[in-house]
Structure formats: C-alpha cells, structure tokens
C-alpha cells in the first residue's frame, strides 16, 4: 500500500491519480487541468503595477480577470505546497542544485546553472504560450480529450526536448 511517508510511489499509481484530478476540474471549474496560463496571469498582474496599459492588450485582459485564471494560479501555488508536504513527510527535502546538473553541464558553478534555468524557464513559457498549452494542458488534458492539435504539440515538445537534451552531456 502506498503511504504518505514513502519516498516514491509507482509511476502508474501516481499517474492515474493525476488523471483523476480531471474530475473536479471538469465538474467544478468547467475546464481541464493546465498550468502555463497562470504564468501570464501572474506576470501581467505584476507588470500592471508599473505599466497599467498592459490591461489594454486583449490577451493580457483575458488572463487577468475571472475565476478560471485565479483557480489556476491557486493550483500552481498548491503544487508547491503539496510537494513541500510530501517531501517533508518522506524526509526527501532537497537543497541547492540537483547533482544531475554537474554531470549534464560539466561544472559545479551555481551561476551557470542559474543562468541556464532562467533561459530554460523563459523558453518553456514562451513556447507554451505560442502553442497555447504545456505538458499539463496539451499533454495530460489535450491527449485525454483526443485533441489533434495537442498530439501535434506534444510530439513537437518531445522532439525539441530530445534534441536539446542531447546537446548537454550524457547523464
């Protein structure tokens, strides 16, 4: 039996639980699971303090108001809380930078890793917003609805990811 204090659950069990989260999303919010549009809601909200004119961009306005947008912001904040709770319960709280990066980058330099993490995050959200979804919205949700655009987007995501990962050192 999986326990809250386990370090790892079976990927099949954990994956199936993620799929079950579609039930409250569909029935109570009237949408599918997603994560990346919350980055627009948060960044446009922050930007609106220095540039109120951003509200006049229709795309920003569409992401600033409404229950669905703030539901997703709360969802991703909850992800951080849930992961913290799980790591605490199993005693797997992480510190610093994962050891895999020394192997992949060939350096222990935190500065190198921080720059690459920022660049990775930038590309990730730029790409997700162009494609209108990420591994959650297109992957978990789009494929589970047999949406053809999502199949294409996820195939392209894996292609781009596999090609880029092979530019790094083999881990």
């Amino acid at each position: 039996m999986p326990a809250f204090t386990d370090r790892a659950w079976s990927p099949y069990f954990a994956g199936a639980l993620l799929g079950l989260l579609q039930i409250p999303a569909f029935l109570l919010i009237g949408t599918a699971l997603g994560a990346s549009s919350s980055f627009v809601t948060v960044s446009a909200t922050l930007a609106s303090f220095v540039d109120p004119a951003i509200r006049e961009i229709e795309y920003a306005a569409r992401h600033l108001a409404g229950a669905k947008n703030w539901w997703q912001v709360a969802l991703v904040i909850g992800i951080a809380l849930g992961a913290f709770l799980s790591a605490k319960l199993s005693g797997t709280v992480r510190r610093g930078i994962a050891p895999v990066w020394e192997r992949a980058l060939g350096t222990k330099s935190p500065a190198t890793r921080f720059v690459l993490a920022f660049l990775g995050g930038f590309l990730m959200l730029a790409g997700a917003r162009i494609a209108d979804g990420c591994t959650s919205g297109h992957g978990l949700s789009g494929m589970a609805q047999l949406a053809l655009g999502s199949f294409v987007a996820i195939a392209a995501t894996f292609a781009g990811g596999i090609a880029t990962a092979h530019l790094l050192r083999r881990i």
């Binding site: 991703v76 992800i79 992961a83 990066w101 690459l116 990775g120 494609a131 392209a156």
Partner: peptide
C-alpha cells in the same frame, strides 16, 4: 513551433511549467 520551443526549455530547465513549482516546494534553489 511552440512545442519545439517548449521542449527546448524543458530540457534546459529540467522541469515543465507545473513541476517547476514542485521543485520549489521540494527545495531546489535553481
């Protein structure tokens, strides 16, 4: 186009948009 860029970002970040927040919760600094 978006998928290719998203994939490149995932490889360099070692995360997806959603799991970035899980990494923060678990304690990864980067």
């Amino acid at each position: 186009v978006g998928g290719l860029i998203l994939g490149a970002g995932i490889a360099l970040a070692g995360a997806c948009p959603g799991t970035t927040l899980a990494q923060i919760g678990a304690g990864y600094r980067d």
